[in-house]
Amino acid sequence: MSYILNSITLRTDNSEGGMAKLNEVWRDIVSGKLPLMHDSDGQFLQGLSPISRYSNYESDENGAYDLTIFTATADFFARMEQKAAAGAFKKYDFDGADIAEAANQAWAQVWSDKAAGTIFRTFTEDFESTVPGEYTKDGQAHCYLYIAIK
C-alpha cells in the first residue's frame, strides 16, 4: 500500500540553523524520502508543484514562523494571480542560474521593499514556488513569491 503526504509543517526562522532545517526537509522531499512529490513507493506525481506557505509569524521576518510545504495544481497559481490583481498580495518573480539564487534575489527584494516602505506586509501568510531550470522553457530557475500586503 502506498501513501502520499498532503503537507509538511515545521517551525523555523531565518537563522543559519533554521535554514539548515529547511534545506534538510527539502532534500527529503526532492529525494522522495518524504512522499510529498512522490508516493511512498517512489513514483513521481505528475502535474503537482511544491509550494511553501509561510504563516503563524511570531513577529516579522526576524522571528519564528511556520513553513508548510504542500503540492498544488495550476489552479492554485490562477487563484494567486487573482488575489495579486485584487491587491491582497504582491507578486515577485525572479530568475537565476539555480533556485537558491532566484529565491535569494526574490527575498532580498521583498526585504528591500519593506525597508523602503514601498510594501506593507501583513505577516499573515506568504507563498513561494521555486522551479529548477530543467523544468522551465528558458532554462533559468524561477522563484515566484506572493507576499500578503495591506
Rank of each mutant, 00 (worst) to 15 (best):
T122A: 07
G139K: 08
A72N: 02
D113G: 09
F94R: 04
D98C: 05
E101A: 04
T73W: 00
Q105R: 14
E101P: 01
S112W: 05
E125N: 14
G17F: 09
G17K: 14
M37E: 11
Y57H: 01
I119D: 01
V25S: 05
C143P: 00
I119L: 03
L22G: 00
I147M: 09
N23S: 13
T124D: 14
E61V: 05
V30L: 13
T12F: 03
L34R: 13
G133D: 02
Q82S: 10
A97Q: 15
Q43M: 05
I8H: 04
L48Y: 05
K114L: 15
V131I: 15
S15I: 11
A100N: 12
E61S: 12
F120E: 14
M80A: 03
S31Y: 04
E58A: 11
L48I: 13
W26E: 01
T124P: 01
F89H: 07
T12N: 12
A116K: 15
V25M: 12
T71R: 09
Q105Y: 06
S15H: 06
G117N: 04
T130K: 05
L67I: 07
L36F: 01
E125R: 14
V30P: 02
L10P: 00
F123S: 02
I119H: 01
Q46F: 11
D113Q: 09
T12E: 10
D95Y: 04
T118E: 08
N6T: 13
S52E: 12
I147L: 07
I8W: 02
Q105A: 13
S15L: 10
L5R: 09
S40F: 12
L36A: 04
R121M: 15
L34K: 15
F44R: 12
I99Y: 03
L145A: 03
G18M: 08
K90R: 15
E24R: 12
D28V: 03
T124S: 15
A116E: 12
R79V: 09
F44G: 04
A116Q: 14
L36Q: 03
A100H: 10
E58S: 10
K91R: 15
K90C: 09
T12Q: 07
Q46S: 12
A85M: 10
V30W: 05
Q109K: 15
D95G: 05
T68V: 06
Y57G: 00
A115H: 08
S40H: 14
M37R: 11
D13I: 02
K83F: 09
S2G: 04
K83N: 06
A141E: 01
Y57I: 01
E101C: 00
F123W: 12
N6D: 15
A103Q: 12
Y144K: 11
K83M: 11
D93I: 02
S31T: 08
D138R: 10
K137Y: 06
A108W: 06
I147F: 07
F70V: 06
E128D: 08
A86P: 03
Y144H: 13
E128Y: 01
A103W: 08
A102L: 10
G117Y: 09
M19T: 07
D66C: 09
I51M: 06
P132M: 07
S112Y: 10
F123I: 04
L34G: 04
N56P: 00
L5I: 11
R27C: 04
I99G: 04
F77G: 04
L10M: 13
E134M: 13
A115Y: 07
N6C: 06
S112K: 15
L5M: 15
T9F: 03
A116W: 09
K21T: 08
S15P: 05
W107M: 09
E58T: 07
V30H: 06
G47I: 01
M1T: 12
